[in-house]
Every structure is written in C-alpha cells, then in structure tokens.
Design a protein around this nucleic acid. Structure first.
Lengths: 231, 231
DNA sequence: ACTTGGCATATTGTATACAAAATGCAAGTG
DNA sequence: CACTTGCATTTTGTATACAATATGCCAAGT
C-alpha cells in the first residue's frame, strides 16, 4: 500500500504508457473531452492495444479519463461542480496532513522546508511561474511525506493529478500570488511552532483560495473549454 | 466524475469480473496475500484473460490487490500501519461529509435516516450482526450522499472497499456495539440540529473507535493472518 | 423536406497465439 | 554438503485475429 516494499523497479509497458498519457493530459496535449482512438494512440506511443487498454483502466481509476462501454475512452472534462468538490476534499486531506505532520515533524524537516520556501520566494521575485508551481508542489508533497500516512499520500496524489491540469490553466494574478507565497510562510511557521490547529486552518484556507482562483478562471474560459477539443 | 450523466447501463465483462473478484476478496473467498493465477481465475469466472487483466487493473487501482511486474497479482495484505492510516483518512473524509451534509440536509433526509436508525436498533436488539453491518453502511452511504460531493463519495467508497474486508473480521464485543449504536443516535441528532462541528466531531470519534477495534482484532489474529493464505 | 430504415465502415471488446520472464528442479562443482 | 548454474516448466506480457457493437451515410417512403 505504501510502495516501500517493492523490490527494485516498477516499470512495465502499461505503466509507461499510462505515464505518457498522464503527462499528455495534464500538460494539455490531449484536450478535455477529447476521445481517444485506440489505434491512433497505439501508433503514437508505439505499443499494442492490450497494454494501452490497461493504461486506460489505470487512468480511468485515477479519474483522468472516462470509459464509455463500447464507445471508448475520453479525457475527462471537469465541470465546475467537480472542481469545487475536488478542492473541498483536497482541503480536508491537506488539513489532515497538517495535523499529522505537526505530530511527526523533525527539525531537519523544518530546515528543508525553509530552503524550499526560500526557493519559492526567489521564483516569485523573478516572476518565474513554472518554477513557482514546481516548488509549490514540492512543498505540499514534502508536507504529506512528513505526515507519514501512506494512504493519505496516495489519495492526495490521485486527486492532485486530476486537479493539476486545471491549475496549469488558472491565471494567477499578482495579488493572489503574493498572498499564496505569504501563506506558505505562515504554514511553515505554524509547523515549526508545532501548532496543528493553526496549520490545519491555514492549509484549508490556502486550498479554498486556490479553489476560488481556479473556479473563476474556469468560468471565464467556460465556452472555450466546453466547445473545444473534440477531434 | 459523478456518474450521473451515464446514459443507461454500465456493465461490461471486465467490470462484472471486477465486481465478482471484489466480493470474493471482501467476503474472504480470497485470502489476503493469496496470489491470483490468471488461468485458474479465467475458468472460475468464465472469462478470458484480457478482460480479467483489466479487472485486475481496476482492483489494483482500488487498492484491493497489488500487481508485481512479471509476477502477477495478489490480494493485498494490509499491515497494521495501513489500517491505521486508512482509518485516519476515512475519519477526515467522514468529518468533511458531516460538515457538508449539515449544509444541505433536508427534513426528508432526516426522516429517512431515522428510519434506518430504527432498523439498526432492531438489528442490534436481535444480535443480528450482518444486518447491523448492512444498515451501518447504508447510513454512512446516505450521509455521504447528502453531503452531495461526488469526489468525496468516490474517494470514500474506494477507501471503504479496502477496509471493509477487515471490518468483517473484527469481533465486535457487546460494549463496543452498544456504544456504536448510541453514537449513531447522536450523529443523527447533530444532523437534525444542523450542528456541523458536533457532527464532524462525532464522526471522527466514531471512526477512531472502529479503527481501534479493528487494530485490536488484527493484533490478536496477527500470526494467523500473516502466515495464512499463501498456499 | 423530413424522417426512418438498412447497409457499409469504423471502432471497440474478447479470445487466443506467441514471446518473454520467472520459478523450481536437478545435476555438477567447490 | 552447500552452493551455483543451466534447463524444463509454468506463468505472465504483448500482439493480433476475430466478433460484436456503434456510427454515419444513403436511399426510400411519408
């Protein structure tokens, strides 16, 4: 369940195909709602239909695509409700991660997180949005790792994959970005102070802000997103 | 994501096979740690290997079995840590469900839940443990439905499937059973009073109690569970 | 002109044949 | 006698052929 006992490697053709598809979906190479032709994808990925279909099942389980019976698979198109719901659950999970992390965090962890925070502030100062996203994700992943709950980590990653595609499309304005960076600072402070309730609160509010930002962006681009991407 | 838009049916051979395997695993027909021979299962389920393997992928995504590369699939054997972690996440999710449910619950829902509660008390009075489990599950499912968060519902069901197998094996003693029934009564009261914080608290404590019960049972039967099932 | 039925095509679903990898056993060697 | 090494067997992984289902088009009828 935690993956720590896996002997050495964990690669296989279906997993590799799933990974390629995952990044294609998340980074926009495959538009939401696009239907996935098996043969075409077979050629593109250089695999046969059998492993590709297993990859489909994996991604469907992750919620990245839906499989209609006898009608193939298509990239999931999240409705505003799905986004609202997803972030609500993410907020609860992150809140739990915060509470658990406080109970297990070491001084070394704090040092590490402060270093990441410094990197984030640098990226912020240089207006480097991709770097910001990367470091942001690293911080949240780190927090989950500190929480030391394998099930939480797995659930978190799964949900995150689904929502990550959207965050890429959210246009973070300056004020919100400033605020997000400040929130991260407070979060690390709460963790260092071992204040679980405060950290939980901060994380939930942080996620709510992200939720609002993404929903606002979605509504602006709604027509565009809903119409596009079908063949 | 919420499944409400699915035209009519949702059956297919892989799904049917997955469903059969799921119940086999949950109800103990397949022991934890047991390795699944593809050909043998093909004959037992009357399907070919291709759909069976897709069923494997689905169940692996649900965390009900693990797939080792080139070494087949085996029923997951949850460690005590996995159980602890799983219930921790379940508690957080149920807590969220409680909060959300308070915001959306109707009087009709309350009537329905009270009816279920009455059934539960009857089962309890008659020492009908299977009925109790069934109704218990119905109540929690209902609460999740009222919460109206599709992502939460899906995540909940997935985790629940994993832990359900264990709950079957937990030997509920009289005192704990009494307490659980009483807790359900309080939960419905809190919901009727629209007291989200209280309901959240009750649910989390309720899950913690279950966690403790299952963990205690696991430790008692540890040797049995860990040794058994590998032919 | 619009709908409806049926046919041709394309696409998904399943079974199976073949390839590759792992497992277990036996024989040989230190 | 323990350990290793190679072979035979079993089991999993992948490709592909065949079947079933859906899709789109065209024609015929209202």
């Amino acid at each position: 369940m935690d993956g720590s006992s896996f002997p050495i490697a964990r690669s296989s053709l279906p997993e590799a195909a799933a990974e390629r598809l995952r990044t294609l979906i998340i980074e926009g190479g495959l538009q939401p709602g696009a239907k996935l032709n098996e043969r075409e994808l077979c050629e593109r990925l250089g695999v046969s239909r059998t492993p590709l279909r297993e990859a489909f099942r994996m991604l469907a389980a992750d919620g990245l695509l839906v499989q209609l019976p006898n009608r193939g698979a298509q990239v999931v198109a999240l409705s505003p409700d799905d986004v609202r719901d997803g972030f609500e659950v993410m907020a609860a999970l992150e809140g739990l991660a915060g509470e658990l992390a406080v109970a297990r965090v070491t001084d070394g962890d704090i040092v590490h997180l402060r270093a990441l925070q410094a990197e984030m502030e640098a990226a912020h100062a240089q207006h480097d949005l991709p770097a910001y996203y990367r470091i942001n994700r690293a911080i949240h992943d780190r927090l989950n790792a500190i929480a030391g709950n394998a099930v939480l980590g797995q659930t978190y990653r799964m949900l995150n994959a689904r929502l990550h595609a959207l965050r890429f499309r959210s246009n973070l304005n300056r004020a919100k970005w400033d605020q997000a960076v400040a929130e991260h600072r407070s979060m690390i402070a709460a963790l260092a102070a071992r204040d679980g309730a405060a950290l939980r609160d901060l994380l939930i509010r942080h996620l709510r802000a992200k939720q609002q930002a993404v929903l606002a962006t979605m509504n602006n681009q709604d027509s565009e997103i809903l119409e596009g991407g079908n063949e």
